[in-house]
């Protein structure tokens, strides 16, 4: 009888609660609608609208004109330099950035904090300053360049110089992406491999590297993206010779200075699509390897 008395009360309360809950999956953390709305508006304003104007502009010029401007021999050479050097720099950074991160995480040495601060310096330094400094060092009469000059190797004013600048710019991306993951990896895992008879190379290649690969890829993607877009430090050391050491961003500036807006946007569109494709690919690889590890 008590049940019969209390149930009408419950009945009247339940449908209201149910109706509200079934509307959408309610989250305990409030403010989803507001924050998501703001985020979307903000992203549109800052990223999406400016980038879409690139497409709209180039769409107006017609397919033939677009191909002529976007894939002119000079433009293609510039893409090759830009993407090639960015890729090479990111690759070098992947190796040495990983080594740096390893040393910082695994060993204690005097001056560790200073080294740690040094790594972030490329983030903070105006890129033009970096460019001028690197040019001074790697030019034929510079500190380092003078040793290569007699061997017939020119560092500055070549794609090698560009790569050097991009290595400088990209270093922190790799170190800072890999570092936390290395820190998270317990020494136990390495000891386990050691106790099972693995040698140091086997431990690195079969235990450590696969575990940090997703974060290494993240760092690689960031360094690569930064390298493709880098302008300030590169123009000083590049020499900027068309077909040889001219990067795509510089070509865009050149077109703009000649009031060839259509040509500039065509090149910009090609770079945008190519960068997006590369980043998407890296993200997919990353998602795949991460899924394997976290079930």
């Amino acid at each position: 009888m008590e049940n019969a008395l209390s149930s009408p009360l419950q009945m009247s309360a339940a449908p209201v609660r149910h109706a509200r809950r079934s509307k959408r999956n309610r989250s305990v953390i409030p403010g989803f609608g507001l924050t998501m709305g703001l985020t979307l508006a903000w992203l549109s304003l800052i990223v999406l609208i400016p980038l879409s104007t690139v497409f709209i502009r180039s769409a107006g010029m017609g397919w033939a004109d677009f191909l002529a401007a976007g894939f002119s021999p000079r433009a293609v050479a510039a893409y090759t330099v830009s993407f090639g050097t960015a890729f090479a720099a990111a690759l070098v950074n992947a190796v040495f950035g990983l080594l740096t991160a390893w040393v910082i995480v695994r060993y204690d040495f005097p001056g560790k904090r200073v080294v740690n601060a040094l790594i972030d310096l490329p983030f903070a330094l105006p890129t033009a300053v970096a460019g001028i400094a690197l040019t001074a060092i790697y030019a034929g009469n510079g500190w380092v360049g003078q040793f290569f000059e007699p061997l017939g190797i020119q560092l500055a004013y070549t794609p090698v110089g560009i790569t050097l600048a991009l290595i400088f710019i990209g270093l922190p991306f790799i170190v800072r992406s890999v570092e936390p993951v290395l820190e998270d990896m317990s020494a136990e895992v390495e000891e386990a491999a050691l106790s099972l008879g693995a040698n140091p190379w086997q431990i690195f290649s079969r235990v450590i590297l696969p575990a940090i690969l997703p974060s290494l890829l993240t760092g690689f993607a960031l360094a690569f993206a930064r390298g493709v877009g880098e302008y300030g430090s590169v123009i000083f050391i590049a020499g900027n010779m068309p077909f040889k050491s001219e990067i795509a961003p510089l070509l865009i500036i050149t077109q703009l200075e000649q009031y060839d807006y259509a040509g500039a946007t065509a090149i910009a569109t090609v770079m945008l699509v190519a960068s997006f494709a590369v980043l998407l690919l890296i993200n997919l690889i990353q998602a795949w390897s991460r899924r394997r590890m976290n079930g």
Binding site: S186, E188, E191, A192, A193, M293
Partner: peptide, 9 residues
Amino acid sequence: FQHYALFKH
């Protein structure tokens, strides 16, 4: 090991 130390990948 206490925390298994399995190779996650």
